[in-house]
Amino acid sequence: MIHDMREYVNYLDGIHKRTMNYVRSIPNELLDWKPAEDKFSTGDLLRHIASARLMFLGIFEHGSWTYTGHDRSKGATIDDISDYLEACQIKLTEGLLKIGNDALSKKVLTLHGHEVSVWRILMAIPEHEIHHRGQISTYLQMNKIDPPQIFGLKIEQVEKS
């Protein structure tokens, strides 16, 4: 369970920074690439991560799930998408700090209408982002681009016992 919103926001900021390392490794030419016609493109995934931050915040601020989409109007270039990701992260962070620790003991409805504690939805935010960051890693590798190492080393560089 999450007990302190500021600590949680600090944790979330670390996840965001690692995602932004991925963003910096993506060339503009890869933004429209997708592994199949019915899948998200690389740009779609990035815009989706950003828009989902606002969707999650909406459940806490307004009690409703609203998704604003991930279309190109939210960023057509990697710089535009980066700005959108940063703006959504700031909005999420400020919103979470504003609702504060009192919200942690409240209940909200899931997308399926089940009542759960706020902290359970908070746990879904990083899980969602990390899931899509994994997809981006795969997209990069499928395009012969080495993804960034989230903690600085490849497993082959870790000393073996």
Score class of each variant (00 low, 15 high):
89 Q>P: 08
123 M>I: 15
91 K>G: 00
92 L>I: 05
101 N>T: 10
111 L>F: 10
102 D>G: 14
117 S>H: 06
103 A>E: 05
115 E>F: 05
118 V>L: 06
89 Q>A: 09
91 K>M: 05
123 M>Y: 12
115 E>P: 09
105 S>P: 03
118 V>K: 06
96 L>K: 05
122 L>F: 05
102 D>M: 10
94 E>R: 11
104 L>I: 03
94 E>W: 03
98 K>S: 14
89 Q>W: 10
112 H>L: 15
114 H>T: 14
111 L>N: 04
110 T>I: 03
121 I>H: 01
96 L>P: 06
101 N>F: 07
111 L>R: 11
89 Q>R: 01
92 L>T: 00
103 A>W: 01
111 L>G: 07
112 H>S: 15
113 G>S: 06
115 E>M: 10
123 M>W: 13
100 G>H: 06
93 T>C: 11
100 G>P: 02
95 G>A: 12
94 E>T: 08
125 I>F: 02
105 S>R: 13
106 K>G: 13
100 G>D: 03
115 E>N: 11
98 K>F: 12
105 S>C: 07
119 W>Y: 13
108 V>S: 09
91 K>N: 02
121 I>F: 07
117 S>G: 13
104 L>T: 01
89 Q>D: 14
114 H>V: 10
92 L>K: 14
106 K>V: 04
107 K>A: 12
95 G>F: 02
118 V>I: 04
112 H>F: 08
93 T>L: 07
113 G>A: 03
113 G>T: 08
100 G>F: 02
100 G>R: 09
124 A>E: 12
107 K>F: 06
89 Q>M: 11
102 D>F: 05
118 V>T: 03
103 A>G: 08
92 L>D: 02
111 L>V: 13
102 D>V: 11
109 L>V: 01
89 Q>E: 11
100 G>V: 05
100 G>T: 05
111 L>Q: 09
126 P>V: 06
121 I>R: 08
98 K>R: 14
119 W>Q: 03
125 I>L: 02
93 T>H: 13
100 G>N: 03
98 K>N: 08
104 L>D: 00
116 V>S: 01
91 K>Q: 03
93 T>Q: 15
102 D>Y: 07
105 S>W: 07
92 L>M: 11
110 T>V: 04
123 M>D: 14
105 S>L: 04
115 E>R: 08
108 V>R: 08
106 K>Q: 08
92 L>V: 06
120 R>V: 15
89 Q>G: 10
102 D>C: 09
119 W>H: 14
113 G>F: 00
109 L>P: 08
120 R>M: 11
